[in-house]
Write a protein that binds this DNA or RNA. Sequence first.
DNA 1: CGCAGCTGTAACAGAAAATGTTACGACAAG
DNA 2: CTTGTCGTAACATTTTCTGTTACAGCTGCG
Lengths: 142, 142
Amino acid sequence: MAANSRLTIATHVLTWLALAQRRGQEVLTSDQVAASVNTNPVIIRRSLGDLRRAGLVEVRHGAGAGWSLARTPEEITLLQVYDAVGAEPPFGLHRTEPNLECPVGRGIRPALSEAYGRVERVIRRELADTSIADMLRETLMS
Amino acid sequence: MAANSRLTIATHVLTWLALAQRRGQEVLTSDQVAASVNTNPVIIRRSLGDLRRAGLVEVRHGAGAGWSLARTPEEITLLQVYDAVGAEPPFGLHRTEPNLECPVGRGIRPALSEAYGRVERVIRRELADTSIADMLRETLMS
DNA sequence: CGCAGCTGTAACAGAAAATGTTACGACAAG
DNA sequence: CTTGTCGTAACATTTTCTGTTACAGCTGCG
């Protein structure tokens, strides 16, 4: 499995909040969300923290606390979630600097950055085309 | 940095082979390639092994051994390299199975697979549009 | 005002994957 | 047969993500 399941976790969380909202449940606690994702509540709180900093969810403190969406599910795209969780780009450059004496070693990194940038752009365009509302609809189909 | 620099290493290797070929140097040893990438020869041999299995490079054994491209630089695309190195997809599903009692836990994975599949498709389309010859040209520009 | 319940975050353990290193048998040209 | 390089195993190192425990901080309610 790929290293990065943060987008998966965050999308799961938001989809679950969207369903709860539609069912009239105002807020969910991190324990309730963790029960659906089947993981530790701290993992969920970390993910929800990312989403809160991005303005996608709201938190209520104190007794009767919990989380709710800050916007409608139609207004939240997977691109916003992708940016919120701060995922690494799919391809990394060299871990150690190439040999700058060599013409390839000198010029390959700008060339790769260009190519990887083009890939990143099409990824973002594609992610922007799917909303949490779309995800909820597809989720309930199965 | 992202975990996966395998595509970067493999592209660097192929670009270097393409330049050597153009300069009239028939083969390069893994030591020579490693000197440009600035890493251990074994890393290079592992990468070249992937590329050989994909039919992108050829190896000559014995004394005076070394590597050369199996096709012209124009005929090798980054998509072929991507497939050759067997990189993980950018997004992974849940590490542990979600709670199947929950409607979201039950339906989210097929929905995510759909969305991630669309992303994978546009990545592949973009990678297929760049060849090693393109990379060499861009590399020598700087 | 104090209690209860949940958040926010630090600290650390564990797991998994990529990378780097050493070593050595296999192979082919001369 | 000698020499130089490949192919690969074995292991150390590093990095990143995930999971867990612990505890201070906040807020509604009695």
